[in-house]
């Protein structure tokens, strides 16, 4: 039993509210918790990554808006491309990355690891807001 419900029952027991009012309050709590659960479920089921850029006309240039929506499924499908890289090509790719300061062992990367990263993108929210430009990146 959560705290709110307990308080309602205590008020009812003390005679501060009637049974009808207690029932109404309980119902309202149920709607709120249901809405919160629904919101959580929607968040967990985020299907797209959205990128929205809005430049301000006060920047001296004409305002421009950019709206990009990328399905999560596309990101998941794209990470599978890593598994298609042939073994002999991986050595060349790793050498090239090493020369550019990136020490990454492609053989250690598994599709399921990358999918875990994609799954965590569902919780990503980035807001950049300065005088000239607004950038929002979020999952929906």
């Amino acid at each position: 039993m959560n705290e709110n419900r307990r308080q309602i029952l205590e008020m009812l027991a003390e005679g501060k509210i009637s049974a009808q009012e207690a029932e109404r309050l309980m119902g309202a709590l149920g709607d709120e918790s249901g809405a919160a659960q629904q919101e959580g479920a929607i968040k967990r089921q985020a299907k797209y990554i959205r990128v929205m850029v809005d430049t301000d006309m006060h920047a001296g240039k004409n305002p421009t808006k950019v709206n990009i929506r990328v399905p999560m499924q596309l990101l998941r499908s794209g990470v599978r491309l890593v598994s298609l890289i042939p073994a002999q090509a991986r050595v060349h790719v790793e050498d090239a990355m090493h020369r550019n300061g990136i020490d990454l062992d492609l053989s250690q990367i598994r599709p399921e690891n990358l999918e875990e990263i994609v799954d965590h993108l569902q919780d990503v929210t980035i807001d950049v807001d300065d005088d000239k430009t607004k950038v929002r990146v979020f999952a929906e």
């Binding site: 421009t64 808006k65 950019v66 990009i68 399905p71 499924q73 596309l74 499908s77 599978r80």
Partner: peptide, 20 residues
């Protein structure tokens, strides 16, 4: 994999709204 990527592109949207 290529087919899966093409299928996953569904609902992808790129929109640029310029004054011109």
């Amino acid at each position: 994999t290529g087919w899966r990527i093409l299928s996953a592109m569904k609902h992808t949207l790129v929109e640029v709204d310029d004054p011109e």
